[in-house]
Each structure stands twice: as structure tokens, then as C-alpha cells.
């Protein structure tokens, strides 16, 4: 829909979108995009209001850790939204592991917020599942399948063969503005006064 606004930048006779068709983005790419933005959102929240997380989880005093995780989360997000999204999503999976481990430390019996921690753990496990599905999806969609590539051994580009092609365009005159420094022979063969003259 954004193209309606950007039509301002177009002139009268330029083509304008009437109906949108098939996209280069696959399902896995859209999922990566959603998870990437989720990372960015969560990262900002952890960075800006870590005390909300620590209070809810009974982890008071761990604000600095939550902030660090916020920065980590932003990193996952940026990479997941880039063309290297498989790295981003797999890094999210690793991050999920770290989150789970951290939450496990809050599962102490004396933690009054234990129920919240359980809830958070369930949520992280759910997201981990999505991350794994997404990571596998984009990896499968964008990797080069193993196996022998096609052979281009006969693609010379020269109808008369490579040997005949070597130097075949010697009739071409390099224009003066594209000449380079003179060759050694070109300088040393010339008369001394000529030599001083710029090429």
C-alpha cells in the first residue's frame, strides 16, 4: 500500500501499481521478518525498562543482565532482518537457550514469583519452537543444494574458439582518456627529449 504514497515521486506517464502479484519473499522470509521485529521490540523493552522484567520474575538486582540481553536481542533482530537472516534466526535459537537457562535459575522454591517464571518459560519455549522452524525454513530456502553444479565447460563465448580470440580485437584503439602509464619499452625506446614529454 506504501506505493500509493510514493506515487508522489512519479510522473504522469510512469507505470503505477494496480494489482500486486507473486513476491520474492517466501513464507520463511516473512516469518524471519516477524521474528526479527519481535527481537527488536523485546530488545528495546529490556534495554529501556529492565526493572519491569526483574520485578515480574523475582530477579531483582539482575537489571544489568537484562540490559545486556536487550543488546543481544537487538543484535538478533538486526541480523534476522538482513539478507543473512539464517544467521539471525539461528542466533535467536542460541539466545533462547540462554534465556531458558537464565529463567531456570529463577525457579527457586523461595521465589514468590515462581508462577510468572513458569509462564515466561512456557512462552520462551514456544518462541524457541518458532525460531527453530523459521531458522530451518530460511536455511532450506536460501542455501545452495549440495551436489554437482551444472557444467559450463563449453561456454567459451568465442564462436571461433579461445585461441582465435586471443588478441582478436587488436584493431581496437584505446581512446586517449583511457590510456594508462606507458610500458617500459615505450619509454626507453623513445628519444630523451620525447621521454620527458607527458604521455
Amino acid at each position: 500500500m506504501a506505493y500509493y504514497i510514493s506515487n508522489i515521486a512519479r510522473s504522469k506517464g510512469d507505470p503505477k501499481v494496480l494489482r500486486s502479484g507473486p513476491s520474492s519473499l517466501g513464507g520463511a522470509d516473512r516469518m524471519a521478518k516477524a521474528l526479527g521485529w519481535f527481537s527488536i521490540g523485546l530488545g528495546i523493552a529490556e534495554l529501556v525498562a529492565p526493572e519491569r522484567f526483574t520485578r515480574a520474575l523475582g530477579m531483582e538486582g539482575k537489571e544489568a543482565l537484562v540490559r545486556t540481553y536487550g543488546i543481544r536481542e537487538l543484535g538478533h533482530g538486526i541480523v534476522s532482518l538482513s539478507p543473512d537472516k539464517h544467521i539471525g534466526l539461528w542466533s535467536r535459537v542460541a539466545g533462547d537457550g540462554l534465556d531458558i537457562a537464565t529463567l531456570m535459575t529463577a525457579m527457586r522454591h523461595d521465589n514468590p514469583k515462581r508462577d510468572n517464571v513458569k509462564f515466561a518459560l512456557a512462552a520462551v519455549l514456544g518462541v524457541t519452537l518458532l525460531d527453530i522452524i523459521g531458522a530451518q525454513g530460511v536455511t532450506a530456502r536460501h542455501s545452495r543444494p549440495r551436489g554437482r553444479p551444472r557444467s559450463y565447460r563449453d561456454r567459451t563465448g568465442f564462436p571461433q574458439g579461445v585461441q582465435a580470440a586471443r588478441g582478436a580485437a587488436k584493431d581496437f584503439q584505446v581512446p586517449p582518456d583511457m590510456r594508462a602509464a606507458p610500458t617500459l619499452a615505450a619509454v626507453s625506446d623513445r628519444a630523451p627529449q620525447e621521454r620527458a614529454r607527458p604521455h
Binding site: 507505470p15 503505477k16 513476491s23
Partner: peptide, 22 residues
């Protein structure tokens, strides 16, 4: 029909208006 840029990694085969002599 034309290949139209919609965003990062999002190129679509869209139906668009025909270009005109300007």
C-alpha cells in the same frame, strides 16, 4: 505486468498501468 520493488527482498510481478509518452 512488471517486476516491482516493494521493499527489502520483496520484488513482485505486479499489474501496473502502461507507460505513456510524456
Amino acid at each position: 505486468r512488471a517486476l516491482v520493488w516493494h521493499g527489502k527482498e520483496d520484488i513482485r510481478c505486479d499489474t501496473v498501468t502502461d507507460p505513456e509518452i510524456e
